[in-house]
Amino acid sequence: MTCQKTIKRSIQCSGIGLHKGRKVRLVLRPAAEDTGIVFALHGVDGVRFHSPSADAVVETTMATTLGFDGQRLATVEHLLAAVRGLEIDNLYVEVEGDEVPIMDGSSASFIFLLRAAGFRRQNKPRRVLTLKKPIHFQQDGKWIKASPSDRLTIDYTIDFNHPLVGTQKFFVDCNPENFTRDIAKARTFGFMREVEYLRRNGLALGGSLDNAVVLDEYGVINPDGLRFPDEFVRHKILDFIGDLFVLGMPMNGDFKVFCSGHALNNAFVRYLVDNRGEYLELDESGEQVIAEEAFFPSPAQAPATSQIWN
C-alpha cells in the first residue's frame, strides 16, 4: 500500500507576485489524511479555506487563477506542480496576498521549501485519479492525448516562431527524482514585444529578468542565459503538471501534448470532470472506486485558525 504524504513542519517565505508586483507571504503547513490541498486565504473577514477544482479556475491569461466567493489567487501552477512533483497529498497553503509569489519563475524555490520542511508518511492509502480509456482533446490545432497508465508520463511538443525556440520536444516520467532534476528549474518565459501590452493591462508588473526568461527577436536577453537548451518546453511541462493538479488530487496517465497552454489545459481538465463517469476512476492504492461521489469529495472541514497556525 502506498500511503499519503504531508510535510513534517510549517515553513514560510515571501516574494513578489508576478502580475501585480505586490509582496506576498506564503506559509506551507502539514495537513491530516484526506485533507488534500487546501488554500487558506487572508481577507478582510479573516482566513477562509478553499480547495482547488477545475471549475474554480476563473482566468488562464498568462497564469492559472483560482476564484472562490469573491477571493482570487493567481499563478498557482508552479506551486501545485512542485506539490504534485514531490507526490505530496495533504497540505495547507496559507497566502497573504492575491498571488502565489513568483520566486525565480520556476518550481525550484518551492521544491527547496518543501524539502526543508521534510516529509511524513501518513496512515491512509494514497488516492489517485486514473483514466478508464484513451481520450483525444483538441482545440484550434492544439491537442492533448491521454491513455490509461499506473504512472504519470508527459511527452510534450511546442512550436514557436522564434529562432531560438522553434520546435522543442521533451519526455518525462514524472516521479520526484525526475521532476526535481529535469522540470522544476525551468522558468516561465515571455517575449519583449508582449511586455508593454501586458503592463498596459495591469499584468507582469512584478516581472523581471530575475523571475522570467525574456526573449527579443533574436535570442534570450537574460545575462545568465538558459538553464537548459530546451528550457521552454520543460517549463510548459511544469505548467501542465500544475494545471492538472487543480483536480485536487494526483492523476496518472500517459499524456502526449502539442502546443497546449493554461486555457487548453483547463478546458481539458473541465471536460474530464464533466464526463468523469466515462473517463475517470479513483484508485486507492490498487482499490478501484467507481462511485461518482468518491471522485471529488468535499474537503475535510478546516480546523479553527488557532488550531492550524501553531
Score class of each variant (00 low, 15 high):
His136Val: 13
Thr167Ile: 15
Ile158Leu: 15
His162Val: 13
Leu131Thr: 01
His162Met: 13
Leu129His: 03
Asp155Gln: 13
Ala116Tyr: 03
Pro125Gln: 00
Leu131Glu: 00
Trp143Pro: 07
Thr130Met: 14
Asn161Tyr: 11
Lys133Gly: 02
Pro163Cys: 11
Ser149Cys: 12
Val128Lys: 01
Asn123Arg: 08
His136Phe: 15
Gln139Tyr: 13
Leu129Met: 10
Asp155His: 15
Lys124Met: 02
Asn161Ser: 14
Trp143Asn: 13
Val165Arg: 03
Lys132Asp: 00
Gly141Ser: 02
Thr153Pro: 08
Val128Ala: 02
Asp155Met: 11
Leu152Cys: 12
Gly166Met: 10
Lys124Thr: 05
Asp159Ala: 15
Gln139Cys: 14
Asp159His: 14
Asp150Leu: 11
Ala146Asp: 01
Ser147Glu: 08
Thr153Asp: 04
Phe160Trp: 13
Gln138Tyr: 11
Ala116Asp: 04
Lys124Phe: 11
Leu164Asn: 07
Gln122Cys: 02
Arg121Glu: 05
Gly141Pro: 07
Thr153Lys: 12
Ile154Asp: 01
Lys142Asp: 06
Lys133Glu: 00
Gln138His: 12
Asp159Glu: 15
Pro148His: 05
Arg151Thr: 11
Pro148Cys: 02
Arg127Gln: 04
Val128Asp: 01
Ile158Thr: 11
Gln122Ala: 00
Gly118Leu: 03
Phe160Gly: 07
Tyr156Pro: 09
Ala117Tyr: 03
Phe119His: 03
Ile144Trp: 07
Ser149Val: 09
Ala116Lys: 11
Gln138Ala: 15
Asp159Tyr: 09
Lys132Met: 02
Ala146Thr: 06
Pro134Trp: 05
Gln122Trp: 05
Lys145Asn: 08
Asp150Val: 08
Arg126Ile: 05
Gly141Glu: 01
Asp159Leu: 13
Val165Asn: 08
Leu164Lys: 14
Lys145Glu: 04
Arg126Glu: 00
Thr130Asp: 00
Arg151Val: 14
Ile154Glu: 03
Arg115Cys: 08
